[in-house]
Amino acid sequence: MPDAHEKQLEELLAHPSVWRGRSRAAVETFPTGFAALDAGLPGGGWPRHGLVEILTPHPGVGELYLLLPALAALSRLAPARWCTWVSPPHEPFAPALAAHGVALDRMLIVRTHLPLWAHEQALRSGACEVALAWLPRASPRAVRRLQLAAEQGRALGVLYRSQKYACEASPAMLRVLLEPLANQHGARLSLLKSRGGTRESIDLTWASAAAA
């Protein structure tokens, strides 16, 4: 009999709206393309909708390589939605993106002095699968707005920020800190915030990404 009660309890706790501290939240995810990272992230991949913050000490750490396998796969879905780049620091180099398997015709670049507004529009519209944004600064309130917009538009919002914001509270779903590895072309990734992910840092090399 105790077995039956335990089973019932398990069923109850498996309900998606019940969230326990150590358990993994039931979110719709998409594989990152890195097996080690998939194992560490809640749900086994990037969330399909919500806001992800990627913090780096300085640009050029590999913050884009981290997303490329997922970006390539998402841009090739059957009814592919768009990927919007809001005020990127430089020009995304089309031949390199194509070499990584990204479908260029689903990319949209937005150059603006209002990155917060543009990012929110892109997330809320429902037209984008992913919206990447490079913001010089964003208050927690603004980040909260973006998180809500991403949930409403069912899009994955990615926010690239400097490491110095790591100590600030953030309403983002997932916060990731990237640091360069000394002797490999890769980075060390630590999850600052995740709903039920691992706490350890994960070493990734970019060339190890599964072929998209």
Binding site: P92, F93, A99
Partner: peptide, 13 residues
């Protein structure tokens, strides 16, 4: 270009 090796060119220009 898609046939060229992926890490030969930078992502940002």
């Amino acid at each position: 270009v898609s046939r060229s090796p992926p890490f030969r060119r930078p992502l940002w220009l």
